[in-house]
Each structure stands twice: as structure tokens, then as C-alpha cells.
Simulated scan of single mutants.
Amino acid sequence: MAGFRYSQPLWFLGVFLLCQALLPVLLAAHERAPLRSLLGLAAAAVVVEVMSAVSGIEAIGLLNLGFVWLALQQLGFLLADGHLDALHRRTRVLTALTAVALLAGLVAAGVYSPDLVENLNPPTVALLLVGVAQTSLLSLGRHRLAGLSQRRAAAAFTGFVTARAMTIYLWHMPVLLAAAGVTALVAMGTGIVLPEPSSGGWWLTRPLWLGLAAGLTAGVAWLLTAGERGRMPVATASVRRASQAVLAGLAGVVLQLAAGTTVLTAAAATGLLLFALARIRAGAGNKKPGPRSG
């Protein structure tokens, strides 16, 4: 169970890699026809979901690992280039309310689970509706949030997290598992009875547990700061090498997701990721210092 849960958050790493690899193509499509690009990807996600439901072949739904997240990437483009902010405030409010109402109706009709985690693998159109609502609300409040972010405490917090975002993401699960293991050993050694999950006592201890997890994760991220600030190697200009790197990286993540974390799968995934890093580097004749990654 620990090995399986350890690997679950890695789905985001695979999605992030896919979206980054396709960024030039999807950004060009956005610049040519922003609305058509978004609607095309959203329509493809709906078609995939219908085909999967009608055929009973759940594997078809895995195509939405691309269509759903790339459609949400298009929403990000619209937010970044000011398209959404240019809309009337009432339009953005209505868009958010419509997305929420439609999602609520589909959940009430039994089309989607009210537990959004169950809509993650494979991603469903429910996540598109959540994304539309969240992006609309972010557009409405981003100027106020920008002002709040300039305050000293908020700036210190976001500065710490932003500079170490990938480290925090990759290391929070090892920290949680280590803390859980130590807690279990202490309980077994001392005879302390841990509260049953979801019981009243369990909920009362959640603030302490979450605070401890956040503090330990922050400490680990601080110790590993150098990893975020190293100089990036010059990337290859070869489409073939870049494609091989992306596929190897995706294969390493998918292996962990499908099989869980064991000594064998961890070694194989690490090998694939190291191969990906080797392929993405520029050749010996094109090596120059790269920009800092932080």
C-alpha cells in the first residue's frame, strides 16, 4: 500500500512532461485560433468519454490524459495573454456559475462521482468544468491576489515555495511515509493506541499531523535547495533525441503509476529518467553554460 500510494502523485509529473513537450505546438495553435483550439480539445475529450462509455472499453478513456489536460493548458494561455481579463466581469461570473451548475447536474444524474479524485484516472470532462470555474474565478480575483502577494509575509512564503516547488512536490511523499513509519514504530514500542481513520480522535489530530508534515517537508526542501538552483544543461536541438527523452520520461512515470514503487520498479524508472536526461542534453559540440533553473 505504501509503495502504491507513494507513486500516485507522480501522475502530475507525467502530465506536466507531456504538456511541456507539446507546448510549442499548442501555443502556436492558440496564437492562430485561441477559441477554436480550446473548443477542439474539449470536444475531443467529450468524444473520447462517450466512446469509452458506449463501447465499455475503459482504456479508450486514457486518451483524455492528453485532451483534458491540454484543454486546461489552453485555458492557461487565455489567462496569460489577457483574453479572459478582457471579458466583462459579469461574463466571467456567469461562466463560472454555469460550469459549476453543469457539473452539479451531471453529478446528480450519476454521470460523474462527487469525489473528484475518482475523476482523475483517467481524467474526465468533470475536471474540465472544474478548470473553467477555477480559471474564471482566478481571473476575477487575480488583481487583488497580486496585491496581497506583495505583502511581506505573503511574499516570503510564496518566494520560499516558488523557488522550491519541484523539490516540495517530489519529496513530500517520502517525508509523509517516513513520518507515518516513525509514528507506527513509536506506537508499537510504547503501546500507544492510534485513533481509527476518520474517527473523532483522528480528525482532532489532523492539524498537528498536517503541521508536522508541512514543517518536515519545508525543512527537507530547504536542505535540497541547491538542486533547484543548479545550472541547466543546454538542450538538444534534435527532435529525435527530444522525442526519445520525452517518451522515456513518460515511461518511467507510467511504470511507477501502474506497478507501484518497489525496488525493481524504482530502479527501472530511475534508469529511464536518467536515459531521458542524457538524451535531452545537447551534443558535445554544442555545450554552453545554460541559464539557472530556479
Rank of each mutant, 00 (worst) to 15 (best):
L23G: 02
L116C: 03
A71W: 13
S7Y: 03
H143N: 11
A53E: 09
F160N: 02
T98P: 00
T236A: 10
G159K: 04
S198M: 15
P233W: 07
V193F: 00
R292V: 14
V47T: 09
F12V: 13
A146M: 03
T261P: 01
D85N: 10
T162A: 15
L17N: 08
G191V: 06
G147D: 06
P34K: 05
G215V: 05
D115W: 02
V15W: 12
G181F: 09
L106K: 11
H88V: 04
L79E: 07
R152G: 03
V93T: 01
E31S: 10
V100C: 07
R240I: 11
F4H: 08
A28V: 03
T95I: 12
A28P: 04
L170P: 00
A165I: 12
L39T: 13
T270K: 03
T124L: 03
S55D: 04
A187K: 09
H143W: 02
N121T: 10
T135V: 12
P195W: 04
L223R: 13
W222K: 06
A59E: 14
R229P: 01
H30T: 07
T225V: 05
S136H: 01
S113E: 05
V50W: 13
A45T: 11
G271R: 08
A184D: 12
E196T: 15
V234C: 10
K288T: 15
L26T: 15
K288G: 10
P291A: 05
G66D: 01
V46W: 15
R32V: 13
A245E: 04
G249E: 03
G294V: 13
V239G: 07
L204P: 05
I57Y: 13
G159C: 07
L10T: 13
A28W: 11
S136T: 00
G294T: 12
Y6S: 11
R152S: 13
I168F: 11
P233M: 02
A269Y: 09
T262L: 03
L102E: 05
G227R: 13
V25T: 06
A268S: 07
N64T: 10
Q134L: 14
I60T: 07
G260Q: 02
L185F: 02
G76F: 05
L137D: 01
F4P: 01
V93Q: 08
H143V: 11
A21Y: 15
E118K: 12
L97K: 01
A237K: 12
L38G: 08
F77Q: 07
L13N: 06
S113C: 04
Q8K: 08
L137H: 00
A266T: 11
V220K: 11
I168E: 06
T91N: 09
G82Q: 08
G159A: 05
Q256P: 00
L224K: 03
A245D: 07
Y169D: 02
L170I: 11
S198W: 14
L41H: 13
I57W: 14
F4R: 12
E118Q: 15
L10K: 03
L128Y: 04
A42S: 14
Q74D: 11
T225C: 00
A86H: 06
